[in-house]
Each structure stands twice: as C-alpha cells, then as structure tokens.
Design a binder for these strands. Structure first.
Lengths: 216, 216
DNA sequence: CAAAATTAATCAAACGATTGATTAATGTAA
DNA sequence: TTACATTAATCAATCGTTTGATTAATTTTG
C-alpha cells in the first residue's frame, strides 16, 4: 500500500533525525540509522538515494509549513509591531523547542567555518526565518514603535542565539536551567512559557522607546 | 632543540584547530590535518597519541589562561557589579572573537543530544566561564544593583547564545551583519566594539532597576 | 676529542576496521 | 507473470592507527 510506504519512509526519517541530532551527520552511520529504524541498510538508498538524500528529506518535511506560518505573521497587516513580535516569538519558540532534534541537526551542520554546498543550502533556509524577524523589527522602528537606536542586526543574533543555546546545547542549558530541556513534558510545562515570557520582556526592555511605558 | 619541538607541536595544533573548525571533528581526517600542517601523518600519533589526543591538546592550550582572567574579574572586590559586568564582557568578547576557530570547534562538538565522555568534558569547561558570569549577576541582584525580577538563568542563554550565533555560525552572522566575521581586520575594527556596546546596552536595559537611570 | 652507543624524530607503507553504496537474489502482492 | 519491496552479501574507498626502517641528534665511552 502507498500508505504503508509513506509511513515507513516517515519512520525512517524520524529515526534518522534523532540519530543525526545525537551523533551529528558525520558521526551517524547509515548502519546506525537503519539498525535503529529496524530496516535493511539498502532501504535508505532505495528510498532516498544516499545518506545526504536522507538528510535533505528530513529538511523537506520540516521547513515548508514552518516558514509559511512565520511568513503569514510577518505579513499580517491587522496587528501592530509589538503584537507581531509576540506572535512571532510564540510560534517560533513552540516550533523549535518541539522539533529540537531537527534544529540540533540543522545548526550543527552549519557550525563550520568552511563553506560547502550544504552550508549554503542551510544558510538560505535559516535566512528566510531571519528575514521575517528583521522585517518586523525594521517596520517597528520605522513606525516609531521601537527605539530607533536599537541594533537590529545584533538583535537577530540575540533572539536566535538565545534559542540555539537552549535547544542546541542541551547538556549546557539543562545544567544552567536545572531541568532536562530534552524532556517533552518539561518543555511544555516549564521551558516554553518561561522562555516566551523572558524573550518578550528582554526585547521590550531593549526596544522600548524611552519615556514610553504604555507598552509594558 | 626543545624550542623547535614546541614550535612544531604548536604549529600542528594551530592547523588542527583551524581544520577542526572548518570540517568538524568527524569531518576532519588525520590525513587532512597532517597534510595541511606539512608533517607526516604518524607525527600526530607520535606527539599526541591519537586524533582525540590532538583535540584535547588544543583544549589544554586555550582554556587555562582564559579561565583565570575571567575568574580574577569575578573575584575583584574593588569594583561594583556594573563594572564587573563591563570588564567581563570586554575580556570575554575579545577572547572568543579572536580565538573563533577554537570556539567553533568547541561548541560544535557539544551540539549533540547524546552524552559522551567528550561532551561531559566540554560541559565542565564551559560551565566554569558560565559560573563566573552567573555569580556576577547573582551578586548584583543581591546587592540591589540589578533588577531582582531578572531571569538569571535565561540571561546566561542570551549572552553566550548571542556570542555563539556570531562566532559559531559565521556564514549566517556574516550575512546578517553585512561583513565577514571571520576576517581578523573586520573583527577588531568593527565587530568587537559594536558587539561590546550592544551587549552592554542590552544587559543594562534588562537588568536596570526601574526608576533608576543613574547607571546609564 | 673522536668513536661508539643510545635516543629522538621522521618517513613510506601497510594494517584491520568501517564507511556509504551497490549488487544479485529472493519475497510479495496485484 | 510482472512490478515493486526487501534482503544478505559484497564493493571500493577511506578511516585512524601501527609498523619497521631510516635519519638526525644527543649521550656515553675510551
């Protein structure tokens, strides 16, 4: 059945995503992935062509819907800059914490100083989400909602960097925060709400115009 | 001569540090490293025992002096919390931007969800720098210098996360910032001063007690 | 001092193991 | 039967490491 085949391919990608997050792309062997997925090694090449094909297939599964959600928030004309910022953060934090394996895998492979085809591809993907955020900030500054002296570009480093620190280096952030950031229950009950609140407070403290407290 | 031997070992570590940063630990082969260093492959094992020995030798070279500098700032009783924060940021940002290869290499190998001996070792190393920063914040809050409602732990994620974003994903941050963050000249003339100023402004906006503007 | 003995440094070649990928054979369902 | 799915076996390439031999440097000895 077509259904079963799709399920099986999806199962392989689920496992591969986790194994790539655990050991990195180079550190994860095709035998490791197929073994944990309970399928014959040759099936990876049969379905996805190659190891890199598996890697890219994981991408296709995740990026499109996510990017469209963020894009729709950025293009929403009915809300002001502060509300856009809130909605963006809510959606973004929910998604990246839940799909932490994917984002660990993604960011690890771009943490190389050498450019490759793969780093270029990942850069393009990541930059789409970055651009949406940048536009929200730039628009807010232009409208006078946000402090015009804000460093828009380094603010990008702060929001995505803070997220990366929590999600991509779980052993560090778990130690700092005092709980296991990889635990799904903890993520929903503790991490997400606290992270959202913090991020909004931080951005408001930095972006707020002086002598203008009515947005707090 | 002893001198020449140390120079040679140091040269190998210089090259290995760069190659590890370029391709990652698994992606960098011993042939690649020895080839670029212009030495016979067997010399890596002769000097450092193994590939992992090379990796760990790079650590020994970098961490000790750096940690002592930060530690002395944290223990300085003659300055207040705001000044400590400033000095910490100045030293930290200088060091991590200059030694970007090392920090790319370091952080990449801890960006795995699976625990290993190596991730545990790296976690311990990183946590030492984190603790110094945490103590500065905690002390400032206790003394009443900083806003007591600040989320100390997520603030850790922000400072180190922002730094990681700039240093460890250079292809992304170069695109966002509009210049090459790996260029040494750009680092000193543009990146470091701007990064320091931004980080201080951001932390002051977040940590400052309300109705207390005399620290700006 | 000079010859001999010892140690350290360097090399090309090969090691066994593992990698990603492919093959040819077999199983399965329409 | 025919087309697709799955398997075990196998492939060449590359991995980190080790080897035995050779050269260079140092120490010991007469």
């Amino acid at each position: 059945m077509e259904k079963d085949k799709t399920d099986k391919k999806d199962h392989i990608l689920d496992v591969a995503e986790r194994v790539f997050a655990e050991h990195g792309y180079d550190g994860a062997s095709t035998r490791m992935i197929s073994g944990e997925a309970g399928v014959n090694m040759a099936m990876l090449n049969y379905y996805f062509g190659s190891k890199e094909g598996v890697f890219l297939a994981i991408f296709d599964r995740r990026i499109t819907s996510f990017q469209n959600v963020l894009l729709s928030i950025g293009n929403d004309e009915s809300i002001n800059s502060w509300e856009k910022l809130d909605k963006y953060l809510d959606s973004y934090i929910d998604k990246v914490v839940t799909n932490n394996c994917f984002h660990i895998m993604l960011n690890r492979e771009i943490s190389k100083s050498k450019k490759t085809d793969l780093t270029d591809q990942i850069t393009d993907i990541i930059m789409k989400n970055v651009t949406v955020f940048q536009n929200i900030i730039a628009e807010g500054i232009k409208k006078g909602d946000f402090n015009k002296d804000a460093d828009q570009q380094l603010l990008v480093a702060t929001i995505f960097g803070t997220k990366n620190y929590i999600v991509n280096t779980p052993h560090i952030s778990s130690k700092v925060l005092g709980f296991d950031v990889l635990d799904a229950g903890v993520q929903n009950d503790l991490l997400k709400p606290r992270f959202k609140k913090y991020m909004k407070t931080l951005l408001k403290a930095y972006l707020q115009n002086e002598n203008d407290n009515n947005n707090l």
